[in-house]
């Protein structure tokens, strides 16, 4: 139990207060920045600030900086697998209908005869069957 006491880290009060104030300042900054439009950068800026805030919380409030490194491993591991989940799913959702866009650079030229005409195959036939009201979703997702 002596080990126990020795391993405990009692952080100074000022450190907690500093981290807390830092978080509040960052909140103000992110709200302020969001009032301006940076186009594509909006997402990156907001997420960047959120990551900094999250790191502060994890490192100091959750003591990751001072604790056994295995907790860090568990935490980072969970984010890693979450990343795999989202990114691998996006390999599908963002790239549907790809192969029809890649007609200009076929993978194996001699293997098949490639289409040369227009590529928007789906939309031209939407009228063929009036009951396919949901088909519009497809047109939007594949024609990007």
């Amino acid at each position: 139990m002596k080990d126990d006491a020795a391993q405990r880290h009692i952080l100074p009060l000022n450190l907690y207060l500093a981290v807390g104030s830092g978080l509040l300042v960052l909140t103000v900054i992110t709200v302020a920045v969001a009032q301006m439009d940076f186009g594509q950068m909006n997402l990156l800026i907001a997420m960047g600030i959120a990551v900094v805030k999250a790191t502060l919380v994890a490192m100091f409030f959750m003591h990751l900086k001072y604790d056994n490194r295995i907790y860090m491993l568990v935490f980072v591991g969970s984010l890693l697998f979450l990343g795999v989940f989202i990114i691998f799913t996006m390999f599908d959702t963002l790239r549907r209908g790809d192969i029809y866009e890649e007609i200009a650079e076929p993978y194996q030229k001699e293997a098949v005869i490639y289409r040369t005409a227009e590529t928007g195959t789906a939309s031209s036939h939407a009228a063929a069957d009036s009951s396919h009201n949901a088909a519009e979703t497809e047109t939007e997702t594949s024609d990007h």
Partner: peptide, 17 residues
């Protein structure tokens, strides 16, 4: 954890996936 999409080769997922 990296291979689940092999259940979906003909599901209409993207060819890249």
């Amino acid at each position: 954890f990296l291979v689940w999409g092999h259940h979906m080769f003909v599901s209409g997922q993207s060819d890249l996936a």
